[in-house]
Simulated scan of single mutants.
Amino acid sequence: MSLDLHIILFLLLRMAIAAAFVVSASVITERAGPVIGALVATLPVSAGPSYVFLAIDHDASFIAQGALASLPVNAATIFMGLVYVVLAQRQSFAVSVASAVGVWIVLASIIRLFDWTLAAGLAVNAVAFGICIPLLAKYRHVKMPLVTRRWYDIPFRAALVATLVAIVVSTSGWVGPRVSGLIALYPIVFTSMMIILHPRIGGPPTAAVLANSAWGLLGFGMAIAVMHVAVVQLGSAAGLMLALCTCVTWNLTLWWRGRRAMNRVRKEP
């Protein structure tokens, strides 16, 4: 397969997968609420295909080092979510999204200045989530407004997400390797959810989705750590599969615990 064809297929795959998951998450959010939507949104939609293609072209050691770079950036993503959630309560769509993206860029740029170990990456995530999860808790429970769906909604959302993915991926070709690595880890799904849901259902309900995503994003960080260790010990294919299983199992556990808690509340007199 030629390099150009490889790049085109990679771009189209990321566009299709991201669009499918983000559109599904937005529809689920409108129908089932922010909790379920958040669980779908925190699956490895964007990072997963990226690592699969990297594994095709590189050895396990390269993938392990890439995971180390991704782990602290996960901490930047939760701070991005916190900034958006707080601002979206009162500020406009443009201010909320631009501020959140700006914070992520600044934090991720700082993170990339250092060489990270697994212990340091886990420590940064522990501190970030220890700060953000309690602060996000009060924004998690918001009633979803009733929305009338128009015939062009789903095609428009899919095109919007696919366009965003195309811009992010293609931009990396001319900005240099350092910024390119930064762009590869950009949280496309979070940004897409903001762009799709905020104008449609408002700031607080959209913020509730991201607030509920905190625990799922914590599981994504654990999956990255699992991948770093597993690819060296078991090879790239097994390591990637274990990371995916970690992420899916974590989200299913969150869903199960949420259902149990809801059932207990309903049974109380």
Rank of each mutant, 00 (worst) to 15 (best):
L118Y: 13
L122Q: 14
A94P: 03
L9A: 13
N125K: 05
V45D: 00
I36R: 12
A38K: 02
Q65S: 13
S24L: 12
M15P: 09
A18K: 09
A20V: 11
A94T: 14
I28P: 00
L43A: 06
V45W: 02
A47N: 08
D4S: 15
V85R: 00
L9K: 14
Q91N: 05
R112M: 15
I8G: 11
L113M: 15
L43V: 08
V52F: 13
L122C: 15
F53H: 08
S26C: 06
R31Q: 04
S109K: 09
M80S: 01
A55Q: 05
A119D: 12
R112S: 14
S24M: 07
H58V: 13
Q91K: 08
I17G: 09
H6S: 13
G37H: 01
I110N: 04
A20D: 02
A76S: 09
S26D: 02
L12V: 15
L5A: 12
S96F: 07
V40M: 06
G33L: 02
Y84F: 10
I8T: 15
D59E: 12
M15G: 03
A55T: 10
S24C: 07
P34D: 01
V23R: 03
L113E: 15
I105K: 02
A38Y: 02
S50G: 08
N74W: 03
A88Y: 01
T117Q: 10
L5G: 10
M15H: 07
L87R: 05
V83Q: 00
S70L: 09
A100C: 02
Q89H: 07
L68E: 06
L71V: 11
W104G: 02
A69H: 12
G121R: 03
A75C: 03
L107P: 04
L39Q: 05
A41T: 10
A67L: 03
A18P: 09
A120C: 10
V124C: 03
G48V: 11
W116A: 06
L122Y: 08
I17M: 08
V83F: 00
I78Y: 01
R112L: 15
S24T: 14
Q65E: 14
V52K: 05
S96M: 05
A98F: 11
W104M: 08
S50I: 14
G66L: 06
A69D: 09
R14E: 03
D115G: 13
A76L: 05
P49F: 11
L122E: 10
A41R: 02
V45F: 04
Q89R: 06
S24E: 02
A126Y: 03
A41L: 09
A75W: 01
R14L: 08
A64L: 10
R31Y: 01
A55W: 03
V101Q: 03
F114L: 15
V23K: 04
V86P: 00
I8Y: 11
L3S: 15
T42P: 08
A88R: 00
L87V: 05
Y84C: 00
